[in-house]
């Protein structure tokens, strides 16, 4: 790797090593597997991100602390998960109070999640898959909706690939998420809508909807997918991602395996046009099963 170009990335890894040695083992292993294209992209992203931080009078150290706080949350939730076999949060109201409506939590959570997009191999691989799918469909995207866009990275990609020619709407239930997204997305074509997706009733239909890591955040995932089905045009496509066995402070619905996810998809009136999944740890499937390692699932869904 090019030392100077990667200096921000190296700094992040050094700090993680000082502050959380156990976790740094995984990150160092991850980075060793990435190629040049990854580092170009990551450096590009980090440049934008550091500017965003600076504009707010924040430093990269702040962001690294956010990330490690998120890791601490995940670790604690994981221990509870393996003790009980369940996620700790049971209702949407509980999570809404604990997370989405809690700016302190939401702030460190979104910064943490943002860094994870480039520190976790599986997050990066899913981003590449999304990229490919948007590329394939770009010509037909005139009305794009993203639900639960969080940090804004996905919609940023979509705008870049579609040449900023479409109409872009971003719906999120959390003001903190929208605030971060606004700062990450350097494009004034996006309409930011603060709303629970269940209460969102637009006047037109969408030909492409993206919903990354939201399905596990609701009590009734079938109802959520049915809602998205109603927002989609007849030939429209829905891109979703959702993890199995992924304890987190804001996860409610537990998918134990990919078939659990497919069942929900079919029940909501969708067919799966294409799918991709990847374990969150790079290891043989057998070992991943033993440790109940989380798997990220991504699917391109079309109406039945």
């Amino acid at each position: 790797m090019n030392q100077e170009q990667n200096s921000t990335m190296n700094y992040i890894v050094d700090q993680i090593t000082v502050k959380n040695q156990l976790h740094s083992k995984k990150i160092i292993k991850n980075l060793a597997k990435f190629d040049e294209a990854y580092f170009n992209r990551a450096n590009d992203f980090l440049k934008r991100y550091v500017t965003l931080l600076q504009n707010e009078g924040k430093t990269l150290d702040y962001s690294i602390d956010c990330y490690l706080q998120m890791i601490a949350d995940v670790n604690y939730e994981s221990v509870q998960f393996f003790q009980t076999g369940e996620y700790t949060s049971k209702s949407f109201d509980e999570v809404n109070q604990r997370v989405y409506n809690n700016p302190n939590v939401m702030e460190y959570y979104m910064h943490g999640l943002l860094l994870s997009q480039f520190l976790w191999t599986h997050h990066y691989d899913i981003l590449l898959y999304f990229n490919k799918i948007i590329n394939q469909n770009a010509a037909h995207i005139n009305n794009y909706l993203e639900v639960g866009g969080g940090h804004g990275l996905y919609i940023s990609e979509a705008i870049g690939i579609t040449g900023a020619k479409a109409n872009y709407d971003l719906v999120d239930i959390s003001k903190s998420s929208l605030d971060i997204a606004k700062r990450m997305i350097s494009n004034d074509k996006v309409n930011y809508i603060l709303s629970d997706v269940f209460e969102y009733f637009p006047e037109h239909k969408y030909d492409f909807i993206t919903m990354g890591e939201v399905l596990e955040h609701v009590e009734d995932p079938v109802a959520l997918l049915k809602k998205l089905n109603s927002l989609l045009s007849d030939n429209g496509k829905l891109f979703i991602t959702t993890p199995t066995n992924a304890p987190a402070i804001d996860h409610i619905f537990l998918f134990r395996n990919a078939d659990d996810i497919r069942k929900v998809i079919h029940e909501a009136g969708f067919n799966i046009e294409n799918e991709f999944s990847i374990y969150s740890e790079d290891m043989p499937a057998e070992k991943a099963e033993k440790y109940k390692v989380s798997m990220m699932y991504a699917g391109v869904l079309v109406k039945k």
Partner: peptide
């Protein structure tokens, strides 16, 4: 953790659970 190769963030969780 530097002395034990497989002691990482993933196995740490399972160690903690077993110790609890």
């Amino acid at each position: 953790a530097n002395d034990v190769e497989d002691w990482d963030s993933l196995t740490h969780i399972h160690l903690v659970v077993a110790i609890e």
